[in-house]
Design a protein around this nucleic acid. Structure first.
Lengths: 274, 274
DNA sequence: CAAATAGTGTCTCTAAGACAATATCAC
DNA sequence: GTGATATTGTCTTAGAGACACTATTTG
């Protein structure tokens, strides 16, 4: 870089123009067991998502995705990971960028644009983790999540104990031929987070159909049946065992270990193939 | 919203914390003809991308993607469209968000994060359009684009007349299991735009394989051969005519019109199926 | 007719879907 | 043996790939 350029940069004022605040928000998914009737029935798995209850306005007491403001020394990815660490004590090892939400009026506090991320916590990590309320968060909870469409409307249902949130959205193309959601009913969710959650779940479903992101829900070693249940919990579409096993075989390697003591035939444990 | 919330919002100061500048940069692709020897040979199609030459530091005289700073009344999408309109006079009707590039040191002017978009201009529009240099841009040109890998390195070649830019990158996973590029040699491109261009082309190729984004390169009515040539120009993989036609048939509808006067059998014109 | 592009028919092979059958444990 | 889950075999069908063949124009 020459003298002239250095001079130029020294006099360059970025704060001459208005700048937005930038956040990273994460849709963190995991699975939880569901007790089944019958003494040696396998417990079912349900997909769930982590939400925090806002302690401050705007949207006080509404439920929102964990997230926070971007700091000068980090990327949006490290920001998402840091905020999750602060709010849930979980070390995130997987992030996917879902989209950017930048409608000028999306946040009543002012000009704030949000980077949406998808993340996954294994059941293992979920067990060890302590969910805490911190910063803006009064408390944090896992919600069972369901999504289906009915009369051209997407219905998102979130359940945690006796609490149920139900949001309705419409999917449409914007002027640039990009798919977008419009919120018809936010169902107790803060900001435009209903959009982000639906976008993230749609992304996750598509990934899971292609056997991507499945392994991140499980410990390092797992049975093929567990893997199949993960896919079924995410996509809400049952698969035929024989076919699932044929297709997954390219992505896994056998170990010499087996499950035991479950009251039925032991299952071989597998690992993810590099 | 109650009294208390209104009070809270009135006292809320977003400018208490540092904020980044945000830009939208667009990789605009199109096709151009390539003259063939032989008196009634069809001209070949080549994929090309629009770059501008920077008129100011930093990276003065280097080539960059068109783009600019986000303004308070717009989304990142409308920002990308506005900047393209200003710099190329083209009305963009298609955008896809490719990713966000937020490494703190990516721009020597300071903390600037970039939203990368992909866009497509049809040959038609390309013909009508006037490319102008404006703002930071000394001039704008279309570059033929090629990308291939060799020894685990991605080689990006951009050619416009006698000018050739050649960048080298390495693809790897970051700590969050996201694919990322590292620039080994930027080949005369500004900032981290080599990364953005490769990301955009990779996205475009994947879309084109699935018959997505092909139609946007062509006028409303087209022949199936033209459509096939578009796909081949993008993916750099030749297809067998009979198979291509079988697969594309779900996405197009026949018209009653035909080409004529080309020195060979006329071809039926098709339209995109809604 | 020659040269060029347009368009169709069909054989093969692979992969997906459906479903049946067998295996192995704890009690 | 019973009840549960684990695992494999195989028939059928749909689709991708390869390639040969026919059709129609202008000069």
């Amino acid at each position: 870089m020459n003298q002239e350029e250095q001079e130029f940069l020294k006099n360059y004022r970025l704060d001459k123009y208005p700048r937005p605040s930038v956040t990273a928000d994460a849709a963190v998914f995991s699975l939880h067991h569901e007790q089944q009737p019958g003494y040696r029935r396998e417990p079912g798995k349900k997909l769930c998502i982590l939400l925090i209850q806002r302690g401050n306005p705007p949207f006080q007491n509404c439920w929102a995705l964990p997230g926070g403001f971007l700091q000068p020394d980090e990327t949006v990815e490290t920001c998402a990971a840091r905020e999750l660490k602060e709010e849930t004590c979980a070390d995130v090892t997987l992030l996917r960028h879902i989209g950017i939400f930048s409608q000028p009026e999306r946040d009543p506090r002012g000009w704030i644009i949000s980077n949406a991320f998808l993340s996954v916590l294994s059941e293992e990590k979920l067990g060890n983790m302590e969910i805490q309320g911190a910063d803006d968060a009064a408390c944090a909870r896992w919600f069972d999540i369901e999504l289906y469409h009915k009369n051209k409307t997407e219905i998102l249902t979130l359940e945690s104990g006796d609490l149920t949130l139900k949001a309705e959205l419409k999917k449409k193309k914007n002027q640039f031929a990009m798919w977008e959601y419009e919120i018809l009913e936010n169902g107790g969710l803060a900001f435009d987070h209903a959009k982000i959650i639906v976008s993230a779940l749609t992304y996750l479903r598509q990934a899971a159909e292609q056997f991507d992101l499945l392994f991140d829900f499980l410990p390092e070693q797992f049975t093929l049946t567990e893997l199949q249940k993960v896919q079924e919990a995410i996509t809400a579409v049952p698969a035929l065992t024989a076919n699932f096993r044929r297709k997954i075989s390219d992505y896994v390697t056998e170990t010499e270990k087996f499950t035991s003591g479950a009251g039925h035939r032991p299952a071989r444990l597998y690992q993810r193939k590099s």
